[in-house]
Design a protein around this nucleic acid. Structure first.
Lengths: 255, 255
DNA sequence: CATGCAATGATAAAATATTAACATTGAGGA
DNA sequence: TCCTCAATGTTAATATTTTATCATTGCATG
């Protein structure tokens, strides 16, 4: 029975998935075999592990196939980060914050001050994965059925939970902010959650990057007047007046 | 205005976090600069990005600091994988499977045949992150408050969801399998979910590695007779009789 | 206890990645 | 316009990783 190799591979895979990539040398040390043997192990574990410049990593960590950097997310990354940092700076000790799904909100999650006592309410896998890293925070996840393209979990039963949590600050994203069409987003299944959240708290923030002003997306979720405070990296000149006349305040984050 | 670099770094960070590491060449292509420039970008983005053998990755992906492979998880990884593979092999097209939390159950999730039509019910971030990768599967997550040490979400409201889902196969983990003390686990908050799941289906599997036999953990969740079928990598000789006389069947996975 | 064979280790050659040094470009100020 | 300097590109040297090859170990079988 010569399957020490299989066993080492299992051990390695498990270790790497838990603790992240390590150098070939470390792996060889830990498994008490030569680097060459570890190489051969990985070669045999086709598909699940790979080398990258002397490091071993689960292949899933190296899944980038797309070559184009042309998504909306990529192009506006620094704007989104700016808005996200601004939003996060508003959070205070003891807050219970709701963080919406989308491409801007992860920047809020990442920028939250680590040393505060917080409760974070979310419904997307993205956000959960970020905020779960901080063991000081209480994290509440609304469950449900998973929607892959937005990484969101949604179910009617989870909305009732919102009634039980006292949200002190809600950060909601929007795909479009328009004078007449109000706040819109791309996916209809998000609408119910966004509306429930807006109803559940008075401290509402709509977080967007500046490319969203004057856009309209298919799913409507609230009139502009209900946006509370708008947080963005910048506001186009013509929209400053629109927002002001809607009685909203605006906060800007430095790009 | 010389901060093209900062912008490129933002774009890169965002891209990498979304889509995983890429090769220096690809990055240079996409950003339309030379490899050398990308290198200098990363050098300036101290801390957040790094190179590994020609690939760029978020540093957080390379966080393995611990050198010892001594956790229970590491030591029994191949046993757990064996049990996990066996469990996964039972799953059939159209099944709605429940996958418990723990260190063994992720091996089930990873070994599920990718080409089946499945609904997967879970309540831990671990499992969700694995099964969400397959877009063919419907994933249902029980929400609630997050418990960091087990990566579990738990809330009374989510248990009611179990009544609405027809689970065809439930894979439950156990920290101890004992003749008299029955099935036990380490965390009391898991008990409610495990019990609800066992009630919700007749097709029950208790998945453990062979180190669990004759152990007793603090939280009791079911008598041995209710285990249904036990799946393990192996069963110690003295326990084969115990299990048989409890009227249970056993399935073994090749280590 | 000798034989065969998978598993492993060691070494050197080939391929790649990293670094350092110098050349070029282009924006902003005199 | 010319000058300066940061940003970038190019090239060659240096270091590292990968691959290929052969020698060694040690278990299993007859």
């Amino acid at each position: 029975m010569f399957d020490r190799r299989r066993k080492r591979v299992d051990t390695l895979v498990s270790f790497l998935e838990q603790r992240g990539p390590i150098h070939l040398k470390q792996a060889a040390d830990m498994l008490d075999v030569s680097e060459m043997t570890v190489r051969r192990d990985i070669a045999e574990a086709k598909g699940s592990l790979a080398f990258y410049g002397g490091y071993i990593a689960p292949v899933k960590d190296f899944g980038a196939t797309s070559y184009a950097m042309n998504t909306e997310e990529d192009r506006n990354a620094s704007k989104k980060a700016a808005a996200g940092r601004k939003a996060a700076s508003l959070v205070e000790n003891g807050d219970t914050v709701f963080i919406d799904c989308g491409t801007t909100t992860p920047h809020i999650a990442k920028a939250l001050p680590e040393d505060l006592e917080l409760t974070v309410v979310c419904y997307s896998l993205n956000i959960a994965n970020i905020v779960c890293k901080n063991e000081r925070w209480r994290v509440i996840m609304l469950g449900g059925i998973f929607y892959p393209n937005t990484q969101v979990f949604k179910g009617a039963y989870s909305l009732s939970l919102l009634g039980q949590v006292a949200i002190t600050k809600a950060f909601v994203s929007a795909g479009g902010v328009h004078e007449k069409r109000g706040l819109t987003c791309s996916n209809f299944y998000e609408v119910e959650v966004k509306q429930a959240v807006l109803r559940a708290t008075d401290s509402r923030f709509v977080v967007v990057d500046s490319s969203k002003f004057s856009l309209v997306k298919p799913a409507f979720f609230a009139p502009l007047a209900e946006a509370g405070t708008i947080i963005a990296d910048a506001v186009p000149e013509d929209y400053a007046r629109v927002i002001e006349s809607a009685g909203l305040s605006v906060l800007l984050g430095a790009d």
